[in-house]
Design a protein around this nucleic acid. Structure first.
Lengths: 209, 209
DNA sequence: TATAATTGACTGACGCATTAGTCAATGAAA
DNA sequence: TTTCATTGACTAATGCGTCAGTCAATTATA
């Protein structure tokens, strides 16, 4: 019935590392580095432990390769944001919206955040990579846009060394979903959340006027 | 030289559980639940593994007791905030300042947050306790104050179901310090950070007026 | 096309190290 | 002398990493 895709040995071999990395992601997310058994990863792929060691030298190397593999997609995001036009406000909100989708709503990014927090001690390189490829570019981008808005007169002057305050609701949503994932704390409705977030960010809490 | 405090056996025995819980905190924070050896905890106290098992049945029970022990001090905070007076703005900022000190700046609370994120899967009760004694009371408190401010005309009407947006900079600072703790990302100056946070929260980013 | 030879991806049992948990022996305080 | 907090050697179990052997897929030969 199903179109039987004939897979050659060479094709299967080329696929193996990625299958193993996918399985490793799930298991490491579930149990952390020390709590995960290489055998569980193998079982998830449908092979035995020996096969995993054909492709990866050690459990540590496998963990690092897995992080590296899943970190790639995010890097594309910051490129996309180059082509935006409009007022500083429009562009800032566009980027914050994209960041919300890519960080708070994307399971892979969320779980990578968990691993960075949980396993950072054991893998210092992980922290450095996360900073250089994730935190720093985001902060720099938001900094730049705020400065543009200040220069054009759209924004008040605010101290730019604290622009993590501006993106804070995104990371907070990420962490709350990481901890409570759908039980106890409901997943926020995206449109309603962004509306409230942007409204407060732009206009503040005070009623004056 | 030092005043030699004579410690009786009974006093020492009464002290042991707390010494073990303190040591357990440090070791579980350093290596996570699975990565921590009971022997390391014992060594930190200056006893051997057998002694630990006199006071705690299993490693799991010890972990749970440790979390319980260190979660207590935070509960006092929410009591303190009852006696505040002044405008809704003043009281909101007072509470946010206290929360910043107690969450972002207090190492114990920070590291408990790490354990909740890292070990929550293995200890579901931990998640529930954290929600009931930590997240929920904070959100409820901030909700209530915002509603008061809206009622008194101080605040604009904002959707109260998203008041985690208001406290987001606190949790974000906590997480960033957890990940980067002093290397790569500098620890923010408290006064300057709170000034920027409160200014943005009250007045927003837009220049209008 | 049919059969034999070869390859190499995968296996799984095993060695070795680690560690949770036990308990009879110890020795210092009372 | 008695009590009992502590010890540390022990076991049972677990899990990483290895590697000689297997067998299905592939290639060479008839």
């Amino acid at each position: 019935m199903a179109a039987q895709k004939k897979i050659t040995r060479a094709e299967q071999k080329a696929l193996r590392p990625i299958q193993i990395l996918d399985a490793a992601f799930e298991e490491f997310v579930r149990s952390g580095f020390t709590g995960t058994r290489v055998e569980d990863i193998a079982e998830r792929v449908g092979v035995t432990k020996g096969t995993v060691y054909v492709y990866f030298e050690t459990k540590e190397k496998l963990f690092e390769a897995m992080i590296h593999h899943f970190s790639v997609p995010f890097q594309e995001l910051l490129g996309i944001t180059e082509g935006l036009s409009g007022s500083a406000t429009d562009r800032l909100l566009s980027i914050l919206g994209l960041l919300y989708e890519q960080i708070a709503e994307d399971r892979t990014t969320r779980e990578l955040t968990r691993l960075v927090i949980a396993e950072g001690h054991r893998f210092p390189d992980l922290i450095d990579r996360h900073h250089d490829q994730f935190i720093e570019p985001i902060i720099a981008k938001v900094d730049a846009l705020i400065l543009e808005g200040v220069a054009s007169g759209e924004f008040r002057e605010i101290p730019v060394e604290f622009s993590e305050i501006v993106v804070a609701p995104i990371l907070t949503t990420t962490v709350l979903r990481l901890i409570f994932d759908d039980r106890r704390v409901p997943t926020p409705n995206k449109e309603a959340f962004l509306r409230a977030y942007f409204d407060l960010l732009l206009n503040g809490l005070l009623a004056k006027n």
